[in-house]
Write a protein that binds this DNA or RNA. Structure first.
Length: 934
RNA sequence: GCCCGAAUGGUGGAAUCGGUAGACACGCAGGACUUAAAAUCCUGUGGCCAUUGCGGCUGUGUGGGUUCAAGUCCCACUUCGGGUACCA
């Protein structure tokens, strides 16, 4: 290489956009200068932007994870430039099943794996240039964090929910009420309705009283039907189960009656529902939560049992159909089954119960066949005094309503199928409906065969029936919720220990001063020989006084329910969050995360927050004001086509001539669907000797959209993208891919366009080999290009339309390139506007413009668009005839409509299209279009 | 079954209040530069017809409707995606 060439190449390096150097330089600058650390500042308005913190899995981040983080980072930086004091923290949801399962397999302590994974996540995130305040990091598995999870649990144990004032109250208030009036006048959320006098209460033993209180505590332990997963060896909450299998791992789940800790989330059902109204969440997410909460208005009705004193209570939303009731159905688990079954029916009932018990939840769902058994007993219809048989069937759920229903086969599809199967009578009570082939389920029509309800429409009949129920004291109006209490125990190791010990078999909470109760070491992460959870292996797992501690641990959602509060005041050792921090930061203004948490975390967090709100710990009733669900990033797989029984691969457009098998190929050795043949040969020894049939000298791969997974070889690592193109290209490209909320496949094709844009931007600042930025006054065209951008980008950021703002930047830079603009007055505002999207290159160029060494563009001021540059003197009208655009016409922007009409009609072109006819009508839309109707 | 969302070139997508469909990119084709490649730059690029010029027709999943004007609003349907489910 001669000297000249060497010199030229050196210059090339200096003036070229060297993203690796720039990324490295500014990432360490931001860190050293604590640019992203925030504190309470009463002189500036706050803004809280939160990402759903990740579970640090062993696989590391793939290119889909940062999508939401980049969006929230852009928004944070934008708000910051606008003068807000922005809280933008990050942490780790560190307790979880995978680390524990890995521990079981390898003996490696989950803490070690977790620590390692966190380090990897952090390294990956750092490379993308996020503006997180890492001083505020939280990890749910750290004692100084889970201390407050345990603390909150103690508060829930020591409170009950008063339904009259719709608020959590100290349990002492309830005890006081019991002492004075018994249950008289008490309206509290509970597992089971109770009734006793003050005298009866005071005659009870301490243990009995504590048992009763357990019925009211917000965190309570009780025998309940739970989702038991034998494979995972633990119980699961409803949101952790879907279609009868566990969400994690897809293992079968069965129903079991077990004594478990639960949180009385159901007490807050109405408030959780009402609270949705004032939240800026998507309609679909609100809808999902509404369905999950599942409010249904109806009535509880008591049915007498023939030859028995007790009355059985059922829940129905259709009390109007009472005259159509022809039988009753009990859930197999109902306590009434044992009470009602006659001796004669006993063998049949027992057989049915056994068969039902054996089936897993999944089998029960899959099995659509109608099954059931007659109990031998009869109930009395309170409306007409008729005796009706009581059946037992698993289509009635023990956990909803009262576990018993009145069956109206004419107007309920399930009752109908049951009645047909067992030949039970079907009595229609709506005029004119045909129930010979199917039930009539619609809530409309006029009542018939229904005594005092005859002639009323369904709506009126429901009201009248409820009235009847109340006046005749055969029941009450009742609102039922689908939302269940959250099962809070897990028979696992890697979770928060409960701050609970047992004395005389009664659970007691630890003294708050003893928190945190640290997770002990265990010899193995498996259950004990006696079937106890892994904590049963911990040595000395007891209080100082020798009382045994709880062996269960808390579920995954425990630690994630209040983490947003802890970020406000992460190092506080005396309270969860100080009054000062809470009253300043209040709640999350913008929350970005996946839609998979709609019925889990987002319900639990809202519940947890409302509870703390009742206690006066937090000042906002709802934790997340605005919420954006970023779409899922799917994988885009590539295929090569191997000719059968050979090691020859044929390019996609030639493959039809052969019999081929598609084989997944690693997307990282494919660029723009063209296979890197050398890399392919090295990729797998099997392909070392592979031969290829090419088209135009290239091997073109097929592709398909699939889930991003290792087995499909379509996982793209953000590190690789950053290494190849730089962090700013990754950030811009992820946004450019499409609308934030839409699911889309990751396709690296196209990333070059974004990278080219950054190079073009870079080149605006250079002439030959030197920085060349002038201080001249910009031309009107240059001003216009800039202010168009300022307006567009602000609008787009506020509407989370980041893909269109990236294209606005491209348009602006293209225009400035055409104009050969190198004016500081244009380029500097451009950099500030671009900063939220591409913080590295904007910081670099901003400094090259001469800003002080210790300053950062992150602290610059956002520029507002000035309309005076956007005014147009001349606008182009589209001239259309009968709705078809024929040509354009430039006219002064301020020309009044009538003048426009005259000018257009007088023009030669218009005469041509009019063909001598007189227009019937002319519509002028100012500054846009003229439509001439002939 | 019920609820929600979506469907636009070869590809990702744009069209903010019913007003010029296809912005911005990718890809592709042609060209410039180069020994060559890469990089870069220029031109073209929904389809069909015509290209000797102007151009013309058609086009946003399907069918209908409202309107001077519909990707956008209404009705019916198809397909795909997501949520949820014996919830009485």
């Amino acid at each position: 290489m001669d000297k000249l060439t060497y010199y030229l190449q050196l210059i090339q390096v200096i003036m070229e956009y060297n993203f690796r150097e720039i990324d490295r330089k500014w990432q360490s600058f931001w860190k050293e200068h604590h640019i992203y650390n925030v504190d309470i500042d009463r002189h500036r308005p706050k803004y809280y932007v939160l990402d759903m913190f990740p579970y640090p899995s062993g696989a590391g981040l793939h290119v889909g994870h940062p999508l939401g983080y980049i969006a929230s980072d852009i928004y944070s930086r934008f708000k910051r430039l606008q003068g807000f004091n922005v809280l933008h923290p990050m942490g780790y949801d560190a307790y979880g099943l995978p680390a524990e399962q890995y521990a079981i397999q390898t003996g490696q302590h989950p803490a070690i794996t977790t620590e390692k994974n966190i380090a990897r996540y952090r390294e990956q995130m750092d490379k993308i240039g996020f503006s997180y305040d890492w001083n505020r990091e939280v990890r749910t598995c750290e004692p100084n964090y889970y201390k407050w999870t345990q603390w909150a649990f103690i508060q829930m144990f020591n409170h009950y929910y008063d339904l009259r004032i719709q608020k959590a109250q100290p349990i002492e208030k309830l005890i006081h009420a019991f002492e004075i009036n018994g249950t008289q006048g008490v309206e509290a959320a509970c597992s089971e309705e109770m009734s006793f006098t003050a005298k009866e209460w005071s005659n009870k033993s301490v243990a009995e009283q504590r048992d009763i209180l357990m019925n009211y505590r917000i965190a309570y332990k009780a025998d309940t039907m739970v989702n038991w997963c034998p494979t995972l060896g633990t119980v699961l909450a409803n949101d952790e189960v879907s279609e009868g299998v566990s969400i994690r791992g897809g293992h079968p789940v069965e129903q079991r009656n077990m004594s478990q800790w639960s949180l009385r989330v159901s007490a807050y059902a109405q408030r959780l529902l009402d609270g949705l109204a004032k939240l800026a969440w998507s309609d679909s997410l609100k809808e999902t939560q509404k369905n999950w909460i599942g409010r249904s208005e109806g009535a509880e009705m008591q049915f007498s049992i023939a030859n028995m004193d007790e009355k059985m209570t059922i829940f129905t939303t259709r009390p109007d159909t009472i005259f159509g009731v022809t039988f009753m159905v009990l859930a197999p688990e109902s306590e009434w089954v044992a009470k009602l079954t006659t001796d004669e029916q006993q063998p049949e009932v027992t057989a049915y119960l056994d068969a039902t018990k054996k089936k897993t939840e999944r089998e029960r769902i899959a099995d659509k066949r109608v099954s059931g058994v007659f109990s031998g007993a009869y109930a009395v219809n309170p409306a007409n005094g008729q005796n009706i048989p009581i059946w037992i069937s698993d289509y009635v759920l023990a956990g909803y309503g009262t576990g018993a229903i009145m069956a109206v086969p004419a107007h309920d599809a399930r009752d109908y199928a049951f009645a047909k199967n067992f030949n039970l009578p079907i009595i229609p009570v709506i005029e004119g409906c045909d129930v010979s082939h199917e039930s009539f389920d619609a809530k409309e029509g006029i009542l018939t065969n229904s005594g005092f309800l005859n002639g009323l429409n369904v709506k009126e009949a429901i009201a009248k029936a409820k009235e009847y129920i109340i006046t005749n004291q055969i029941g009450r109006v009742k609102i039922n919720f689908r939302l269940r209490d959250a099962i809070f125990s897990r028979q696992r190791y890697w979770g928060e220990p409960f701050p609970i010990y047992y004395k005389d078999r009664q659970p007691y909470t630890l003294d708050e001063a003893k928190l945190p109760l640290k997770l002990p070491e265990v010899s193995s992460y498996l259950p004990t020989e006696h079937g106890e959870p892994p904590l049963g292996r911990a040595a000395n797992w007891q209080t100082e006084d020798g009382f045994p501690l709880e062996l269960n641990t808390m579920p995954g959602f425990a630690g994630s329910s209040a983490y947003y509060l802890r970020y406000m005041d992460p190092h506080n050792d005396t309270v969860l969050v100080s009054k000062e921090a809470d009253e300043y930061w209040r709640n999350v203004d913008l929350y970005i995360g996946g839609t998979e948490h709609a019925t889990g975390h987002l319900i639990y967090s809202r519940f947890w927050n409302k509870f703390l709100f009742d206690l006066g710990i937090v000042c906002e009733d709802e934790p997340f004001q605005k919420l954006i669900n970023q779409g899922m990033i799917q994988g885009r797989s590539n295929f090569v086509y191997r000719i059968k029984d050979s090691n020859i691969f044929v390019s996609i457009n030639l493959k039809d001539a052969y019999e081929t098998t598609p084989i997944h190929v690693d997307v990282n050795i494919v660029h723009n669907d063209i296979l890197d043949i050398e890399a392919f040969k090295k990729w797998n020894p099997e392909y070392k000797t592979a031969e290829f049939i090419l088209e135009d000298g290239k091997y073109i791969c097929g592709w398909a959209v699939e889930k991003m997974s290792k087995s499909m070889y379509n996982v793209v690592n953000p590190d690789d993208i950053v290494e190849k193109y730089g962090a700013d290209t990754l950030r811009l490209y992820e946004m450019f891919l499409g609308p934030l909320e839409q699911s889309k496949p990751w396709d690296t094709n196209g990333i070059d366009g974004v990278h080219r844009f950054l190079k073009k931007l870079w080149n605006l600042f250079w002439k030959e080999d030197t920085m060349a930025v002038s201080d001249e006054t910009p031309t009107l065209e240059e001003w216009k290009a800039l202010h168009k951008l300022l307006k567009k980008v602000k609008y787009d950021i506020e509407n989370f339309s980041f893909n269109t703002s990236v294209s606005a930047f491209m348009i602006c830079v293209n225009e400035l390139t055409t104009l050969k603009c190198n004016k500081r007055a244009i380029l500097e505002p451009l950099l500030i506007t671009l900063n939220p999207f591409a913080p590295h290159i904007s910081e670099e160029l901003w400094h090259r413009l001469g800003h002080k060494d210790d300053e950062s563009i992150c602290n610059a001021t956002w520029l507002e668009a000035d309309e005076k540059y956007l005014q147009e003197d001349v606008v182009t009208y589209a001239i259309s005839f009968n709705g078809k655009v024929r040509y354009q016409l430039s006219l002064p922007a301020d020309m009044p409509n009538d003048k426009v009409e005259i000018t257009v009609l007088e023009s030669d072109q218009a005469q041509k299209w009019l063909e001598g006819k007189t227009p019937k009508k002319v519509i002028v839309v100012p500054k846009k279009i003229v439509n001439i109707v002939i």
